[in-house]
Design a protein around this nucleic acid. Sequence first.
DNA 1: CCAGACGTTGTT
DNA 2: GTCTGG
DNA 3: CCAGACGTTGTT
DNA 4: GTCTGG
Length: 222
Amino acid sequence: MCGRFVFYSPAEAVTRLFGVEFEQEFQPRYNIAPTQVAPVLRRDDAGSRRLNLLRWGLVPFWAKDRAIGNRMINARAETVAAKPAFRQAYRRRRCLVLADGFYEWQRKDAGKVPWYIHSTAGGPFAMAGLWERWRPEGEESLETFTILTREADPWMTAIHHRMPVIVDGDTASRWLDPATGEQALNSVCEGPTGVELEATQVSRQVNNPGNEGPELIQPVGN
DNA sequence: CCAGACGTTGTT
DNA sequence: GTCTGG
DNA sequence: CCAGACGTTGTT
DNA sequence: GTCTGG
């Protein structure tokens, strides 16, 4: 799945690769955890790409309590179209979550081992997501997102059997386009990951969401 | 009808 | 808001 | 995802 | 064991 990720690419690279400018400042992050904000790429009503900071953990519009978002950090691509918490966002509010990589924990007898999974060529990529706007009474409205997951690529299954849906180029545009139908969305989720990935084992420092810094993605021995 | 859930992962 | 279970 | 709390009364 | 918060 995808329960922690990394985004440190500079604004220039984001503009070059995704054709969008940051609207709020975002410092490089090596340990983005649920409930924290991250840059999310959406299309506005005019069709232009926009990049804003949203909170991770989708809070459905009907929620009474934002804590429900703690359990909505991922949506299974196989079932997302039918789930009450995601169905409307899936039809009308798709987004891209930008990342330089993500973490997966491999279960071993000795405990869990964290791996950092990133582009072999280097550079950021986009994960398919959904976003939602929650308007609690008497409080400021809150925008949140979730990341879609799918079966992991075969090379990855020794580490973990789920991974985020990663989209690239035209596939990413199709995901964002509000006119894209459900069948085409399904093929986006089932299609090949357009980015070649590799995994490096990292230190357990990443386990604690309070830890932060480039040392978290440094390879460790084994 | 009302009450209560609305999710994923992984493990047994 | 909408569905499931009782 | 992992880490850390998980409770009440009453007092400072 | 299960939930909340980061």
